[in-house]
Design a protein around this nucleic acid. Structure first.
Lengths: 233, 233
DNA sequence: TACATTAATATGTAGCTACATATTCTTGTC
DNA sequence: GACAAGAATATGTAGCTACATATTAATGTA
């Protein structure tokens, strides 16, 4: 049945996904080669490839050279989080953003930060504690460690004017980013800085970034009570 | 200088990103056309296109047909969260998984759920409250609403044996997924179900899925104290 | 049998052409 | 000047070929 239309990679992707969903190919099964699919659908291999890449990225299948394509045994839900610069997040909500440097000092990386980076030896780092405010009320407190070997320029940045968050995002790309999210009970220290109550449930985001294996920054951001993180925009 | 090598799309992408980072092109600036870049790099337009798609996806640039490519004014950090089936998450930690159906009933969708789906009228839904356990200790409690119009087969599934989580992931693809994460202070109800203390900080994940505008399920999952969500795997 | 070398193979990438599609810009008409 | 119709243009997609790369399978030798 030489069909003429419907050769878009989106359609092909949906067809293949449909087959996986109705158990034509079950979890762990090996899918036909791209070429085989191309022949079946009457399209080019590149189109199948495009579809497959999308399926692989969304976590439905796994691809390995020579190994072929297999249906993932453990389907995952993949969600993309958009983490904007805090200033923009605040401004987008119509609030006035303000930033306040609390403390900054040079310190060798403590074990917890070394663990985040996967380092075996301590390195000199710049520790920056700062507060982001929305309408003069505390919004997010961040405790950040910056590797001065990877980012020497940070020494010449006036962090009382510009937040490390913003400077790094604007000036340092990263090739890898690890994220950890959890809830924590607020301590008295938190309540002082965030003007929250002791015992409040606080949302914590830990973020560590590298540029091709070289550590850039690792930070722990604690949000004020009521903070929510969304997917999309 | 007709360079021969270095035409991989990754290299092209890095070159362009580098230019954006060293302010050759600043935030809001329009980049040259793909073809122009291709001529400059001495590669094919398709290679530039590939590089650009990657930059667009990672949130560095924005592309619009005819409008061209512009450097995003507000760089974002994009992180992909892998949310596995709860059973697999538990088993991967080496714990024994158990699942317990607490309650299930047909109810019209309440306002909060309608809001999640963006519905204007109530629809008949199956509400399922269930508990996931790790080593016989509460792990995640989920309060789930399933749209029976979109997923009629759910009526014939024995939800005391198989979790709705697992059945849906395995049987119902979704085309859109909204996610909301936040921290909440544990109530007495939570402490009963999760065996936590009243006042504990609890991590909450709200997830809503659709298949091309048709609502599938919306759920609120509350994790036991100490739970963490990671990127990657 | 053990192990290194080689062949086979499925996916990945680079390059090309041609056409599709969505905007923006231009032009024409009132 | 306002607005609609049409031309121009940058990105998006489909198809093709050729080659690269990773990994498994086969083969040969001690």
């Amino acid at each position: 049945m030489a069909e003429k239309q419907r050769h878009s990679w989106v359609a092909i992707r949906d067809s293949i996904r449909e087959m996986i969903l109705n158990s034509t190919y079950g979890p762990g099964d090996k899918l036909p080669r791209d070429e085989e699919f191309a022949a079946r659908f009457g399209c080019a291999r590149s189109t199948v490839h495009r579809a497959m890449r999308d399926l692989a990225q969304s976590g439905i299948v796994e691809r390995r050279r020579k190994g072929g394509t297999t249906v993932r045994r453990d389907p995952v839900t993949r969600a993309t989080l958009n983490i904007p610069i805090t200033r923009l997040e605040v401004e987008q909500k119509g609030s006035v953003y303000r930033y306040q440097l609390i403390r900054q000092s040079m310190q060798p990386s403590p074990p917890a930060i070394m663990a985040n980076f996967g380092l075996h030896e301590a390195r000199p780092m710049l520790r920056v504690e700062a507060l982001h405010l929305a309408d003069s009320r505390p919004y997010i407190f961040e405790d950040r460690w910056i590797c001065v070997e990877t980012v020497p320029e940070i020494a010449s940045v006036d962090l009382s004017r510009e937040s490390a968050n913003e400077w790094l995002v604007r000036n340092r790309p990263y090739s890898k980013c690890d994220l950890r999210l959890y809830a924590r009970t607020g301590t008295s220290t938190d309540s002082e800085i965030l003007q929250s109550e002791v015992g409040d449930a606080l949302f914590v985001m830990e973020r560590t970034t590298w540029i091709s294996d070289a550590p850039i920054t690792s930070l722990c951001a604690v949000a004020r009570p009521g903070y929510q993180l969304f997917t999309q925009g």
